[in-house]
């Protein structure tokens, strides 16, 4: 039950919270926040388990993966936010149109 695994479990907690909000919350900005929190959760799992290295420095490969992940996350968030603004400009409300109202 080392600290690393505990942090990893917290990461899972963040992931689950984010997934719950993504499904339930209707406002698109809330969904984007939820996705960011889920991303942080996965990164926490990745980095925490890297700390299980017995002593000495932790495993650098997950760190590199997480840095790449963070940059990808900010790129995706930027695109999502501009798309959200365009959706609100055209449809007038920050929600997804109902799926069956083609």
């Amino acid at each position: 039950m080392s600290v690393a695994v505990l942090y990893a479990v917290t990461g899972l907690g963040l992931f689950s919270l984010g997934l719950y909000a993504l499904i339930v919350r209707a406002h698109l900005l809330r969904k984007i926040l939820a996705l960011n929190i889920m991303g942080s959760g996965v990164f926490l799992v990745l980095t925490a388990l890297a700390r299980r290295a017995p002593d000495g420095p932790p495993d650098p490969v997950p760190h590199a993966m997480v840095i790449t992940g963070i940059v990808v996350a900010v790129a995706a968030t930027a695109l999502a936010l501009v798309l959200l603004r365009r959706v609100v400009e055209t449809t007038g409300q920050p929600r997804l149109p109902d799926p069956d109202s083609e």
Partner: peptide, 12 residues
Amino acid sequence: WVRLDAPDVALA
């Protein structure tokens, strides 16, 4: 991240 000895990630 700092607590997990990942300074690069903390900065990023």
